[in-house]
């Protein structure tokens, strides 16, 4: 019964707009679309063009057309493959942790308890912090000499002494995932909480009458209801994961060694340190394609059952 209600709710369609209304809407949004084209489409196209050229460092003109040479350089470099692997591991961790943590926060804050309003307000704080600030906060929090995390772990008796999380390649990557996910989870929680608040109580009541327990209601009522929001959250998380730069750079600069050198850091180094615009652009195109493919696969997987 609950599932039937969800499906009928999702099938309800808004009446089609008249042609005149659509034209009017288009006119109203035209300035914003033109601005978007300037800020997003033009740089994206230029990056694609640059990736096939031997671009002079000024970047004013694309330079000589060299076909796929920049891509051959990228794919022939072990630095790229190592960085790609780090990016994939980081992204998987980031998407899973930030989505699950965000869902957990949202479920918790959807319940009635004293102080809920304050906690909901607090949720905005990490989200309102710039990524760079988050990176600096986490670098100090996990510091091997004076970090709060080490103090906490020692007080709880979980460690004997201070641990340098950022000097170990494996723990540095884990900390980078947690630090970045902490902010993104708050953003995910805000979206998911908004989704949860539109969930009609009757659905859960009907599911309870049908004999569903808390887990059953979560699986068969809450998750299906949240699916559109979850899809948005996951796709955004994937994009943020692939584009993540500031938090990692502030914490480790991609180190120790190349342990946390995700593709965005490699692009930065290539574009702004080595000033190799052609190769840097090729890397940027590859990263964009990766995040696009990741997002599309996710959407497809999430909506597979509705086909």
């Amino acid at each position: 019964m609950a599932l039937t209600l969800i499906r009928s709710a999702s099938r309800a369609k808004v009446s089609p707009m008249s042609r005149a209304d659509r034209q009017f809407g288009l006119r109203l949004s035209a300035p914003a679309l033109a601005l978007l084209a300037m800020l997003l489409v033009v740089p994206a196209v230029l990056t694609l063009v640059y990736s096939f050229h031997d671009v002079p460092p000024t970047g004013i003109a694309p330079g000589e057309f060299i076909g796929l040479t920049n891509y051959e350089t990228v794919f022939g470099s072990p630095v790229f493959w190592s960085s790609l692997w780090v990016t994939i591991v980081f992204s998987l961790g980031f998407v899973v942790v930030s989505t699950c943590l965000g869902l957990g926060f949202a479920l918790l804050l959807n319940e009635a308890f004293p102080g809920r309003g304050i906690l909901r307000g607090l949720l905005v704080i990490p989200w309102a912090c710039p990524w760079l600030v988050i990176g600096i906060i986490w670098r100090w929090f996990v510091d091997g000499s004076v970090g709060g995390l080490n103090g906490l772990l020692m007080h709880l008796g979980l460690t004997d002494g201070y641990i340098d999380f950022l000097s170990n390649p494996r723990s540095a990557l884990i900390i980078a995932v947690i630090g970045a996910s902490w902010r993104q989870a708050c953003f995910a929680a805000i979206l998911l909480l908004a989704g949860l608040q539109t969930l009609p109580k009757e659905l859960n009541e009907a599911a309870a009458i049908d004999g569903a327990g808390p887990l059953g209601r979560f699986r068969h009522v809450t998750i299906p209801w949240l699916r559109p929001v979850l899809a948005t959250v996951i796709v955004l998380n994937i994009i943020y994961a692939f584009l993540q730069f500031d938090v990692i750079f502030a914490m480790t600069q991609g180190g120790p060694g190349d342990a946390t050198q995700v593709l965005s850091i490699l692009i930065y180094r290539q574009l702004f340190v080595a000033t190799d615009i052609g190769t840097g652009s090729a890397l940027a195109v590859i990263l964009a394609l990766l995040s696009l493919v990741g997002g599309l696969i996710t959407v497809r997987l999430l909506y597979r059952n509705e086909a």
Partner: peptide, 20 residues
């Protein structure tokens, strides 16, 4: 006045070229 998709795309295209 009529404002078709073609007109719109032309406008956006011009803006893009201008930005470039």
């Amino acid at each position: 006045a009529p404002f078709g998709r073609r007109t719109f795309l032309r406008g956006v295209g011009s803006a893009g070229i201008l930005a470039a």
